[in-house]
Design a protein around this nucleic acid. Structure first.
Lengths: 231, 231
DNA sequence: CGCATGAATTGATCTGATCACTTGGTCATT
DNA sequence: AATGACCAAGTGATCAGATCAATTCATGCG
């Protein structure tokens, strides 16, 4: 049996649009075509085009800006995504998430110490400066964001886009919940110091130390969370 | 200013629908409401409901089956997804993907040797039997699928849903391309033998060996690919 | 120059209808 | 009783055209 794949009109539309983007070599942020012109181009009705656009928008391949137009989104060409509409994770799910990070990020840090992509290192520096300011100013919400960004930048320093996507996906998840974690963890100064040590190790190209420090950092957080969840 | 997050009607609709699913404790595969009844429930027009449904469908949280109804999809509640509409990856991107797998999967195998989730181990056994049959029957397409499934099952054996999602996301990517890889790699018997050794190590609870075998397995594939891409 | 203003463009949503697929039941045939 | 053909209701898919709302940018006033 040949498993007839019945491609719906919508599947065709969505892939055709991606092909259009690829053919025109559009980059992230570039304006795409208007809904009406797409409808005419593909000879389908406006609502149909919009359904296809929504599908692409859901995965971040496109953006629809009211009154402005359709634009190429940040996730076009990505392989791994964070679910943009996750259900509220349970406490256990958050522990699993941290475990996953504690497993994945240390070897990524080791790789980063070998690759040392300069732009990412600069981003990490920048994040540390920002973090220091936010600690004194007390804006814990933005601090949590910046700390997550440090981890994302660390992954980007490894020079592997797929790894960066994976790490971003597991760090993006509900900053709300991560906030709670940070509030539990609490010791923001220690966090900052550990981040600084990690960056120094990466800068020095010491992949063993970078991996070890990253593991210690995440295991520390994990231990606190675990104690909190299973008292 | 009160930071009026201008949640579009669509955002509200999509999240409301997810809330409905959560409230009713619907499981994957359960039937949801019809488009028309949803339109009436939320007091919006049908095309609007459909756009929200498309968004949820795009991430696999829902499925729309023509003539039948709307059903809960397999990805509801997931945190990490594979891009369902990826662009054609370049050769370099595929190497990166393999590198990412070679970095992530070995420690996952080690964890699997500790957790040993029985259902996943059974799945791995089943995959190996299937793979042996497909090698003799010569169905290389299905063989590639089964081999990927072995790796996914291995991740599930680790008992961490997030890790399983990550590994699935990096193994789902374009079976077409992975096929090409397998054709390059070619030595299907070796693959099978290595898979068998990995499962044995996991079964035995030898996490050091499981990690080492998995690393050797993926590094072997990676080496061949690298030689092929950079001749 | 700087800022209001209004027209044009574009996305957002609605209304209502028609087509196509699935499903389950009816009913004649076997 | 089992089987298969057939029909009708429910449901998603698509269409057509219209109206509302946000953005953009050229225009022109102060």
């Amino acid at each position: 049996m040949t498993a007839v794949v019945r491609r719906s009109l919508l599947d065709d539309l969505a892939t055709s649009m991606l092909d259009l983007i690829a053919d025109r070599k559009l980059a992230v942020g570039d304006q795409f075509e208007s809904v009406r012109s797409l409808a005419e181009r593909f000879q389908v009705a406006v609502p149909t085009v919009r359904e296809a656009l929504r599908r692409l928008e859901a995965i971040g391949a496109l953006e629809l800006r009211h009154g402005s137009g359709v634009y190429v989104g940040p996730n076009v060409g990505r392989m791994v995504l964070a679910n943009p509409l996750p259900l509220k994770p349970t406490a256990g799910r958050l522990v699993e998430l941290l475990q996953a990070r504690a497993l994945i990020e240390p070897p990524v840090a080791a790789l980063a110490a070998k690759a040392r992509v300069e732009s990412a290192l600069a981003q990490m520096e920048h994040d540390l400066v920002q973090a220091a300011e936010l600690i004194t100013s007390g804006d814990h919400d933005r601090l949590a964001e910046i700390n997550m960004d440090f981890h994302r930048a660390l992954a980007q320093a490894a020079g592997n886009a797929t790894l960066a996507e994976v790490v971003e996906s597991v760090t993006v998840v509900n900053v709300r919940e991560q906030l709670e974690i940070l509030h539990i963890h609490g010791d923001r100064e220690t966090d900052l110091a550990e981040h600084r040590a990690i960056l120094a190790a990466v800068r020095a190209g010491d992949h063993v130390l970078a991996e070890q420090l990253t593991r210690a950092h995440l295991d520390g957080v994990l231990a606190v969370i675990n104690a909190r969840v299973n008292p």
